[in-house]
């Protein structure tokens, strides 16, 4: 059953995903900087390489050769551990997302996903909630007041929005009758995209996921204006780069998950005739979704922390709960 070829297939697919995410991370930063610059009537980085395409490489190189400081009285082990804990969930959360139809490569039937576990949605929820540990520990171990406040904010914010986020997943799950992402995509192929059937769930997912990854306008934990950088105030060099990487990979992750749950994933015209189109469609959807995230960042000021918590607990959570129940009632009655 398990043969060497299968294991190699897994390793290669895992490598492809991780390389895609790390390279994607680099180019999302360029994408964001250039796109933001355009919105703000600036040019953006355009000196390193053609169109500034080598900018992330230059940034990375610079960070490698930067001195890394560890503040006095910091908990050194946890201080080192925190960025690693933060980046791991970001790298592995997309393992259950299908990229396209199964294809025949070198005479071998290859499924374009790393694993189609039957509890994929639970896996995503579980993995995303791990990243809160990294941020909390980073804030706590730095022995810095801004970092501590940022870490605490992050903890409270991320766990609060996890509720709404988890409930937003339930809408598509009820409709598809499965927790597997592959099944959810198939269900959308046979009916409509869930953004049409579940608009409330999509909106809740959109905002709750932004809050979950601490992006503007919900970037309270790193709120530059108040907390100077929040939980990663004391991090420098490559350890800072890990936090940065985690944030941008999480952006890619929520875009991919959002595209899969609500926009039909790799689904698109002619995808059943030409299987190569699947990954391209998915990528296109992700790029558009990322563009919206950047646009949101360019446009809105930050919500205040207490308002954010109230939004989560008093509006999003009950609304998401109501959405699940109504969806279930409709599904049962139609059946």
């Amino acid at each position: 059953m398990i043969d060497a070829a299968l294991i190699w297939e897994w390793i290669i697919k895992s490598l492809i995903l991780i390389i895609f995410l790390t390279v994607g991370f680099m180019y999302v930063t360029v994408y964001e900087r250039r796109f933001l610059a355009r919105i703000q009537s600036r040019i953006g980085p355009n000196r390193a390489g053609p169109f500034g395409l080598l900018q992330p490489a230059a940034d990375g190189l610079k960070l490698i050769f930067k001195e890394e400081l560890i503040p006095a009285n910091a908990d050194k082990f946890i201080f080192l551990l925190a960025p690693i804990i933060t980046v791991i969930p970001a790298l592995i959360v997309l393992a259950v997302i299908p990229w396209g139809e199964a294809m025949v490569i070198f005479g071998r039937q290859v499924n374009l996903f790393i694993s189609d576990v039957n509890v994929a949605v639970v896996y995503i929820m579980a993995v995303t909630s791990i990243s809160v540990y990294g941020i909390t520990l980073a804030g706590w171990s730095s022995n810095n007041k801004y970092a501590l406040l940022g870490g605490l904010r992050a903890t409270a914010q991320m766990i609060s929005y996890e509720l709404a986020l988890g409930l937003a997943f339930m809408g598509p799950v009820v409709l598809a009758g499965s927790l597997s992402m592959v099944d959810i995509v198939r269900a959308q192929q046979s009916s409509l995209w869930y953004v049409v059937l579940q608009p409330a769930a999509f909106l809740i997912y959109f905002f709750a996921s932004i809050a979950e990854i601490n992006r503007a306008p919900f970037d309270m934990p790193e709120a530059e204006q108040e907390l100077t950088a929040g939980y990663h105030a004391e991090y420098s060099g490559m350890k800072f780069a890990l936090f940065f990487m985690a944030e941008y990979i999480k952006m890619i992750a929520i875009s991919t998950i959002g595209a899969t749950l609500f926009f039909g994933g790799f689904d698109g015209p002619f995808v059943d005739q030409i299987p190569w189109l699947g990954p391209i469609y998915l990528l296109a959807k992700v790029v558009i979704y990322l563009g919206v995230l950047i646009w949101v960042r360019a446009s809105w000021p930050r919500i205040r922390y207490d308002r954010l918590m109230q939004l989560g607990w008093k509006i999003m959570f009950p609304l998401a709960l109501l959405n699940v129940i109504i969806t279930a009632v409709v599904v049962v009655l139609v059946n």
């Binding site: 933001l36 919105i39 703000q40 009537s41 600036r42 503007a216 306008p217 970037d219 709120a223 530059e224 204006q225 960042r297 360019a298 446009s299 809105w300 000021p301 930050r302």
Partner: peptide, 14 residues
Amino acid sequence: LLNDLGAFFTPALY
């Protein structure tokens, strides 16, 4: 002021 509210430089640059 908008920057201080957390807007990412767009109003300031305008």
